[in-house]
Design a protein around this nucleic acid. Structure first.
Lengths: 218, 218
DNA sequence: ACTTATTTTTACCAACTGGTCAAAAGATTA
DNA sequence: TAATCTTTTGACCAGTTGGTAAAAATAAGT
């Protein structure tokens, strides 16, 4: 009976049961930061734990003390990402002025691309690979998009928005805005390494505004 | 002096010097076909030779008899891809009717996305990773885009096209069309597995036409 | 100060990776 | 049909990969 108390003893990993230590919080952040870099560049299979560990300034076993597997890290990054990803969509206000709402949505998406390009690329990588790990989340997105599409259809019926397929409108907005994160290398190469590249997000906002607002005017 | 004749003897690989055998042509095609599948899904680092070999129905050493390294296969795929990638851009006719030319260009790009989605994803993967292997080709693209941008600027000066930045116009066209290849999984999930998904390219053509033609009308 | 819990390191593994080699098996040609 | 050239195979290898076990070092609570 003496060893009864050891039965429930958790494995010598960073315990998720008790409160997180200061060190745990710090190191986990370091790891996720480094992992985002690596995963967003090489995708899940192409990324290695060693690479992430080195990037985070830790030894591999030390990293694995905080996250038991490669999948765990990836999963965590995806979860954080998807939360932020849906936010701008939620903010579309059915009561607002249609073209202004769409303009604001484009603006928010473009800001995400500018401020969180690695997250955008992580997502792109996941979809490119056939979205094997985010099938469920894609269903949530589907529901939300269908909801907002109904709003758009209402606007169209009211003659406040050009007749068009809301789904494809969403695709176009996502594509054009995320392009500035996912294809940044290409964008910068083509704009040249001059001022034009530094201002690319302002210029993009201007262009997309014009394209969508004029293109969708009823 | 007797061994002089062996000096130039090439390694026992598929000889590129002599004319290609029937078998060589067949097997190389098989391999490239299989490799396109794997590379476009997992990127360069994430793809393995074993995977490609199995996909092609060959043993690994047999595959390596036709292509000496993983890079060789990848390089070949990229070369083929980039050739087709620039073609639609070349076809933009400076003498044509501006909006009709743009509409036709969008249509050609959309057809590429529909008919060669894996090639599009291969390219996307390469750019996502920072375009380490196609820096030169990107410079060629830059030159060509600058050339065609001049054409657009001429059209704008003539009042036949809305005032806008041609570079960002190109980005938007690339983004929206390639989206249907690169993010196909997401597109199909959101459209549902019904008819709407089957018709997605027709619907996309219709939508993009409206968006760009109306959006760019002067 | 001492006990306990957390963090880090060292040494290790089995499976996989890209790639080689030599010999066997099949085609082709003289 | 024999000689030659091309194709395929099986055995192999060194380096990398994801991950483990146990002990050593450090930090925290009492």
């Amino acid at each position: 009976m003496a060893e009864a108390k050891t039965v429930l003893k958790s494995k010598p990993r960073a315990s998720k049961t008790r409160k997180r230590t200061r060190i745990q919080a710090e190191k986990e952040d370091q790891i996720l930061e480094a992992a985002l870099d690596v995963f967003s560049k090489h995708g899940f299979r192409g990324a290695t734990i060693d690479q992430i560990a080195e990037n985070a300034g830790l030894s591999k076993p030390n990293l694995l003390y905080y996250f038991r597997t490669k999948e765990t890290i990836h999963r965590k990054l995806l979860d954080e990402l998807l939360e932020n990803w849906l936010a701008p969509l939620h903010e579309i206000n059915p009561e607002g002025e249609p073209l202004a709402e769409i303009k604001a949505y484009i603006c928010r998406k473009l800001e995400l691309a500018r401020d969180y390009p690695r997250e955008s690329r992580l997502f792109a990588n996941e979809i490119l690979q056939g979205a094997p790990r985010i099938a469920d989340e894609l269903q949530d997105l589907k529901k939300l998009v269908n909801e907002k599409s109904k709003v758009f259809e209402g606007w169209i019926a009211d003659g406040k928005l050009a007749k068009c397929d809301p789904h494809h409108l969403f695709f176009s907005i996502w594509a054009t805005t995320q392009h500035y994160a996912d294809f940044d290398t290409q964008v910068c190469t083509i704009l040249g390494d001059a001022d034009k590249c530094d201002n690319r997000f302002e210029e993009a906002a201007k262009f997309l505004d014009q394209l969508f607002v004029q293109g969708l005017r009823p």
